[in-house]
């Protein structure tokens, strides 16, 4: 009769970590354009790489240009119109 094997883990919840295997991959020097994998997007995720890194200041700028120049649009919405002179 096969039975009673060595107790390997308790039935209830109890965890102990040992020998965690961690494989490291350095991403420096990667090139290519075809398809950028999600783990390669560290640089693109930096705040200074955003289309509008400072939206509140951009709203003010766009509002000023909207009121003082003859053309507008194409960027972040800078609030409502005005009777600016």
């Amino acid at each position: 009769m096969r039975c009673c094997l060595k107790i390997r883990s308790e039935y209830f919840f109890s965890i102990r970590f040992y020998g965690g295997v961690i494989i490291l991959l350095s991403l420096s020097g990667l090139t290519g354009c075809a398809s950028v994998e999600p783990w390669e997007k560290g640089m693109l995720a930096k705040p200074e790489m955003g289309w509008t890194p400072d939206p509140i200041e951009a709203a003010m700028e766009s509002h000023i240009f909207f009121s003082k120049e003859g053309s507008s649009g194409g960027n972040v919405s800078g609030g409502g119109g005005c009777g600016c002179n």
Partner: peptide, 25 residues
Amino acid sequence: MGSPCKLHLYLTQKQANTVPQAALD
């Protein structure tokens, strides 16, 4: 005795500095 637990993760250098410890925590 607890159950043996292992994490196998592919990490960037930057992730390696923070993710494993935070994951264990």
